[in-house]
Amino acid sequence: MGFWLRLFVVVFTVFLSGNAFANERGKTTEFSAVMQKFNKEYKARNYNAALEYAERAYVLSRELFRQGHFFRFMATSQYGQTLEKLGNPEYLEINEEALGSLGNNFAPDSPALFEIYYSQALGYAKRAESEKAIFYLSKVEDIYKTHHVENRLLMAAILKVQAALNTAEGSFEDAEEKYQQIYEISIEVFGEDDSKTYVPYLDIGKLYLARKKYSEALFYFTRAHEVFTKNLPERDTRLQNSHAFLVQTYELLGQREKATEHCIAIAKANPSEKVDTFKPIFWSEPDYPQELVHEGEEGSVVFSFTIDEAGMVRDIEMVEGSKAFEKAAREAVERFRYAPAIQDGKPVATHDVKHKITFELEN
Results as ranks from 00 to 15, higher is better:
M35I: 11
R330T: 09
E234I: 07
A332S: 14
Q181T: 02
Q120Y: 03
A324I: 09
K40P: 00
F70M: 12
R6W: 09
A168K: 09
A156W: 02
R211I: 01
A267E: 03
S304D: 07
A339C: 01
Y201F: 14
Q36K: 15
I134M: 14
H147S: 12
T249G: 02
Q181I: 03
Y183V: 08
E129N: 12
E52V: 15
Y220D: 01
F172M: 13
Q78K: 14
V247N: 01
F114E: 03
F106I: 04
E216Q: 15
A267H: 03
K196W: 05
S195L: 03
L102W: 01
N151A: 08
E177N: 08
F71R: 04
D352M: 00
E63H: 07
V161Q: 06
S61M: 04
E309F: 05
Y136F: 14
Y250Q: 03
N48Q: 10
I134F: 10
G68N: 11
T167V: 14
Y214P: 02
S272T: 14
K274P: 05
I143A: 05
I204M: 09
E141Q: 05
F135Y: 15
P111Y: 04
E188R: 10
M318W: 01
A267I: 05
F8D: 03
Y91I: 06
P340K: 06
I281T: 03
F305S: 06
N23W: 06
P271W: 09
P289L: 08
K354P: 00
V302L: 10
Q180A: 10
R335Y: 01
D352A: 12
D315F: 07
A224C: 05
K268Q: 11
D236L: 06
H225P: 06
M318V: 08
M35E: 00
F31G: 05
Q120N: 10
S110E: 04
L64V: 09
E334I: 03
S61F: 08
A156I: 10
I316Y: 07
Y42R: 12
R62P: 02
I94F: 03
E261D: 10
V319I: 14
H355C: 04
L137Q: 13
G191V: 04
